[in-house]
């Protein structure tokens, strides 16, 4: 344990460098640069609002903000788990030649995506002003679902990174799972509008939905949904624990498979 910590301290500069590299290179390559991070959720939210808000006549005045909150969190979850999954293979050249703690690759990927996610929050901030949603002290609660999301993504990312070393075609399977997660995250509909009956448990199995619920509560000035909070915390820390143990047990085999 102490060794692992000392090692982390020794390589923390590498972690910072890798996070910086991801962000720098992402924006160096595209002409619109940082603007894309803001434009992309804005445009997808516009599309979703038109289809679900106008055509289906759902939602109300603040429906675009409702969509945007779900959309931003889902995009972060999807992008960073996908990137973390590929992180070990992507850095195989380095892993084969020099010793570095291997968890640093999924970690740095998840963190750099988190920074980009935080930048994309600017758009939410603007939307809240435009749609005149009064900020309340509940806004501070947002930090809890946002932290849980990071923990969840770290855990899921490590599990996927490990599995992807052994199974190259995992990406295809994961994109299907991501679709399932997207449709059960109530991004563009209200759960109350659905005719669920006793089938509410489907949503309670989706950690991302549970996190989005409390993030929305914070933005719209409502108290936290405690059940969703506990469940989300359980899933997040559970997946982190499983991820760390699984990754740790398999990491010595990575080099023979990449």
């Amino acid at each position: 344990m102490k060794n692992a910590w000392n090692n982390f301290i020794k390589y923390r500069f590498l972690l910072v460098e890798l996070v910086k590299k991801d962000i720098k290179l992402k924006y160096r390559r595209s002409y619109l640069g940082i603007l894309w991070t803001l434009l992309e959720p804005l445009l997808t939210t516009a599309v979703l609002t038109i289809i679900f808000g106008k055509f289906l006549g759902k939602g109300g005045r603040t429906f675009p903000v409702y969509i945007l909150t779900g959309r931003l969190l889902y995009t972060y979850f999807a992008n960073s788990t996908k990137a973390a999954m590929k992180s070990i293979r992507k850095n195989s050249g380095m892993i084969k030649k020099v010793y570095v703690p291997k968890y640093i690759y999924p970690f740095s990927t998840v963190l750099s995506n988190y920074v980009i996610f935080m930048i994309s929050m600017i758009i939410l901030f603007l939307a809240v002003i435009v749609f005149k949603i009064k900020p309340t002290w509940h806004l501070f609660q947002a930090i809890i679902p946002l932290s849980l999301l990071l923990v969840l993504v770290m855990g899921v990312g490590m599990i996927l990174a490990t599995l992807a070393v052994f199974f190259r075609d995992l990406e295809y399977l994961w994109s299907v799972v991501l679709m399932l997660i997207m449709y059960t995250s109530s991004i563009f509909y209200h759960v109350n509008d659905l005719d669920l009956g006793r089938r509410m448990w489907i949503f309670k199995l989706n950690p991302l939905y549970l996190i989005i619920v409390n993030f929305r509560n914070a933005i719209f000035g409502r108290p936290m949904d405690m059940e969703a909070l506990w469940l989300a915390a359980m899933y997040s820390f559970g997946s982190l624990l499983v991820g760390i143990i699984f990754f740790y047990k398999q990491q010595d085999k990575f080099i023979m498979n990449i």
């Binding site: 020794k10 590498l14 460098e17 590299k21 290179l25 390559r29 380095m94 570095v100």
Partner: peptide, 22 residues
Amino acid sequence: AGFDLQYTGAENIYLYGAVLGY
């Protein structure tokens, strides 16, 4: 082997140095 091709030489000095644990 640890170089990032998109990065400049100067940036790679920091990156590769970090890989070696400096």
